[in-house]
Design a protein around this nucleic acid. Structure first.
Length: 308
DNA sequence: TAAGATAAGAGGGACAT
DNA sequence: ATGTCAGTCTTATCTTA
């Protein structure tokens, strides 16, 4: 984590750059800044001082374009670069080239598919506040999926959402399946099916979600104090050392630990608030809470605090 | 009103058939 | 391929302090 002195739109927050996931996150309100999203966009510059007209100097190159942004289109005018008319044989050759140019450019069904997918990916990027790196990774995964014909019989949206989810996980950005389902019209069931399919077929090893990032995310959303957050993190470390988190829903566990540290720090909150921020139910928090108590997996001191 | 308890049901992994 | 089983999480409802 590296601090920078850019201010967020919220009053007091400074921003913290998360180098791993490439996101800029305000440590006060948890907002993901979209500043970086501009970087790879097309550059507009004015060289013409007379009329101030904007001239496009080139489109951005990105995996998230169906042709990687490098398309070159053969023009319609039968003139050479000096403006002279082409002779008949050259004319014929150009005509042939145009035909193939058009055939290969967009007519391939696969490319049309990619175009649709990537325009949707742009939408996801804005709504989720994803970094360019994540978008590129998602685009890469989607291409792979298409090459292996995994998208057949499945909606573009579900495969794309799954690819995006995987990209987030790989880059360490804390996004849940639920986050994806909320901003796409993909049903949870379809999304998790696509997700597992991609992981299986593409041999992707998805790192487990970073529990610390889960804590930060929930704490920001539920507006919990810095102190509570730190307590939760140290408790979580303790759990990790005892291999407690294995097989448990990370968001549920993180929510429970946060609730616990609210109690020990005397911060006023309810199970409901935290559960809502974490996207789990209160019942989940309770059962995790009970697990922790019965398994005696916490240090004596933490246990004591819990019983108070 | 917040928190605890309980039950029913969904979805998926492991394993056997 | 199909069925079963244990384990997890969610939703709903009732009870308790």
């Amino acid at each position: 984590m590296q601090s920078s002195i850019v201010s967020c739109i919220c009053d007091s927050g400074r921003q913290v750059t998360d180098l791993e996931s490439g996101e800029i996150i305000c440590d006060n309100c948890g907002r993901v800044s979209l500043d970086k999203a501009m970087e790879s966009r097309a550059e507009w510059r004015t060289f013409d001082s007379e009329n101030n007209s904007r001239q496009r100097v080139g489109s951005p190159s990105s995996l998230a374009f169906h042709d990687m942004g490098l398309s070159t289109i053969i023009g319609k005018v039968n003139k050479d670069s000096a403006g002279h008319n082409l002779d008949a044989s050259m004319n014929y050759r150009m005509q042939r080239l145009r035909t193939w140019d058009a055939r290969t450019r967009v007519h391939a069904a696969g490319h049309r598919n990619l175009m649709r997918a990537f325009s949707e990916l742009e939408r996801l990027k804005d709504k989720l506040g994803l970094s360019d790196a994540i978008v590129q990774k998602a685009a890469y995964i989607y291409r792979k999926a298409q090459e292996k014909r995994l998208a057949r019989g499945r909606s573009v949206s579900s495969i794309l959402a799954a690819a995006t989810y995987i990209a987030c996980r790989e880059m360490g950005a804390a996004r849940t399946l639920r986050d994806l389902t909320e901003i796409t019209n993909v049903k949870r069931k379809a999304l998790s099916r696509s997700y597992r399919l991609l992981v299986l077929e593409l041999d992707i090893k998805v790192p487990s979600m970073d529990l610390m990032k889960c804590i930060v995310k929930i704490a920001n959303k539920a507006k919990l104090g810095e102190r509570t957050q730190r307590t939760a993190m140290s408790t979580m470390n303790e759990l990790i050392n005892n291999e407690i988190p294995a097989g448990k829903d990370p968001m549920g566990l993180a929510a429970t630990v946060l609730y616990l540290s609210c109690l020990t720090n005397g911060e006023a909150t309810t199970q409901r608030d935290i559960a809502e921020a974490a996207g789990v139910t209160e019942v989940t928090i309770r059962t995790r809470f009970k697990d922790l108590k019965t398994k005696h997996c916490l240090s004596a001191m933490t246990m004591q605090e819990m019983l108070l």
